[in-house]
């Protein structure tokens, strides 16, 4: 029984190391692998929107830093292309 447990633990350790290695390769470095797991994964989500869904309205601040507007004010007459992103 102990021998079986040792084998299971060994296999799990190897799988864990292999997974970490793959993650490091995908991310570019161990530091990036950590950054991905620590900071990126918690913010990545699929959401529930699909083609045909009602577009959610949200309140946004203008680049002037003063005036707010609602997203729904920007659609209606023509299609609206939305580009989400950040500087970094």
């Amino acid at each position: 029984m102990k021998r079986l447990l040792k084998w299971v633990a060994g296999v799990l350790a190897v799988l864990l190391l292999a997974s970490f290695g793959v993650l490091c390769y995908m991310a570019g470095s161990p530091r990036d692998a950590y950054g991905m797991v620590r900071y990126a994964l918690p913010h990545m989500h699929r959401g529930t929107l699909k083609v045909g869904s009602d577009a959610p309205d949200v309140r946004l601040l203008g680049i002037d830093g003063t005036n707010h507007f609602h997203l729904r004010e920007r659609w209606g007459a023509r299609p609206l292309v939305l580009v989400f992103g950040s500087f970094t």
């Binding site: 913010h43 699909k50 946004l60 203008g62 997203l71 729904r72 292309v81 950040s86």
Partner: peptide
């Protein structure tokens, strides 16, 4: 437009880190 600090737009559109959408004239995705 700038998302607020509750990240409402990000949450509603699963936007982070970046994503593109087109909303049609009737307000649908």
């Amino acid at each position: 437009g700038v998302d607020d600090m509750s990240n409402a737009a990000d949450s509603a559109y699963a936007a982070w880190p970046e994503r593109l959408y087109i909303i049609d004239e009737t307000g649908h995705i």
